[in-house]
């Protein structure tokens, strides 16, 4: 699929800030299922975007903008060609040992209820079947709700409420998969919904699970499907914190307002 992306993040500061330091994971690394035609990040201030890589192999850009600043806008514009591989990933950069992806993190700790839920859902099924059953069960159990959780909500908190956003669905799925001894990780990126909608208020988050003999597979528990060519996979990590599109610190300034606008378009018509 030919996808065009435009992602604008605008911070407005109630009182001017002295400076902003940010670390962006907003650039996809190509693999067999994703070809980057063009990709560009802009910051509307005089700042050098320093490219680097983290230990997961994510492409990172950092910058420091010196104030006083009333507002700051980060823009991402890109164009990619994706392929539907039924969620199975080939040609990805694998820098870290598989065993590391079995680790629980504070955001992805499987408490007894999640571990029991995972075991019941898998019900002795083998590998892929177990994961599909888990995804279906989770999707039945959870309700998508943008008003209940926040970025610091942990898997077990969201699971107890049975409500949350894609980040919560992914964290629970990751925690559950790890409790079944599958290496699992968080993915941040974008997706184009099948209803043809172009505008979104947030990026997307899903999970990848490693299945012996198959490799890494993208599971999107929010939509109860494996990742398709409608997904743009950008960054990975043990949980949301590692794969966050933006991590930043500002000095000075009072309250900030955040506006995010994302547009994912089918690119074919314009080519």
């Amino acid at each position: 699929m030919h996808l065009k992306l435009q992602h604008t993040t605008r911070y407005t500061y109630e009182t001017p800030v002295r400076g902003v330091v940010q670390m962006l994971r907003l650039t996809p690394r190509p693999y067999d299922g994703l070809h980057v035609v063009r990709w560009r990040i802009d910051v509307d201030h005089d700042a050098t975007l320093k490219p680097s890589e983290d230990s997961f192999g994510n492409i990172v850009h950092s910058f420091c903008a010196e104030g006083p600043l009333d507002a700051l806008t980060v823009t991402v514009e890109g164009e990619v060609l994706t392929e539907d591989t039924s969620g199975i990933l080939h040609g990805t950069q694998e820098r870290l040992p598989l065993g590391l992806y079995l680790r629980q993190t504070p955001l992805t700790t499987a408490d007894r209820t999640i571990a029991d839920f995972a075991r019941d859902a898998a019900d002795g099924r083998d590998r892929l079947d177990a994961l599909h059953a888990l995804m279906a069960a989770l999707s039945d159990r959870m309700t998508f709700d943008v008003d209940v959780t926040h970025v610091h909500t942990t898997a077990d908190e969201a699971f107890a409420d049975a409500k949350g956003v894609c980040q919560d669905f992914a964290h629970i799925f990751i925690a559950a998969a790890r409790s079944l001894k599958f290496p699992a990780r968080y993915v941040s990126g974008y997706m184009r919904q099948s209803d043809g909608r172009e505008h979104y208020e947030a990026g997307h988050g899903w999970a990848e699970v490693h299945v012996p003999g198959v490799g890494w597979i993208g599971f999107d528990p929010t939509n109860a499907i494996c990742a398709t060519d409608a997904y743009i996979r950008v960054a990975i990590g043990l949980d949301y914190l590692d794969a966050s599109p933006v991590r930043g610190v500002r000095t000075g300034g009072a309250h900030e307002t955040l506006d995010v606008s994302i547009q994912v378009q089918h690119g074919a018509s314009q080519q």
Partner: peptide, 9 residues
Amino acid sequence: YANPAFRPE
């Protein structure tokens, strides 16, 4: 690898 003192970073 499961040890929080081990830092993947």
